[in-house]
Computed example of a mutant assay.
Amino acid sequence: MAACGRCGRPLKTPESVRDGYGPICKRKQEEAEAEFLRIQVTIDEELEYQKKVKR
């Protein structure tokens, strides 16, 4: 039996097995991934910042 990739509980539906997460953990994982992507700094942003602070 497949287990949830987030909490380790058994997955019961074919959709959950396909996704690797139960429905609640899937939502939490998607929220966590969206937050991770939101706070990432791109190399272009870093280079622009370095130009601004360079003296």
Rank of each mutant, 00 (worst) to 15 (best):
A2P: 13
A2L: 11
G5W: 04
R6C: 01
R6H: 09
R6W: 05
R6V: 05
C7Y: 10
R9H: 11
R9Y: 05
P10K: 03
L11V: 03
L11Y: 07
K12M: 03
K12V: 02
K12L: 03
P14Q: 09
E15V: 13
E15I: 15
E15L: 14
S16A: 13
S16E: 15
V17A: 05
V17G: 02
R18C: 06
R18E: 12
D19S: 07
D19E: 13
G20P: 10
G20W: 00
G20Q: 04
P23T: 11
P23G: 12
I24H: 03
C25P: 07
K26V: 00
K28W: 06
K28D: 03
Q29S: 01
E30Q: 09
E31H: 02
E31V: 06
E33Y: 06
E33K: 13
A34Y: 02
A34K: 09
A34W: 04
L37Q: 12
L37C: 09
L37N: 10
L37P: 02
R38F: 01
R38V: 00
R38H: 07
I39C: 06
Q40R: 14
Q40G: 05
I43D: 14
D44T: 08
L47K: 13
E48S: 15
Y49A: 11
Q50F: 10
K51G: 09
K54L: 14
R55Q: 15
R55M: 12
R55A: 13
R55F: 01
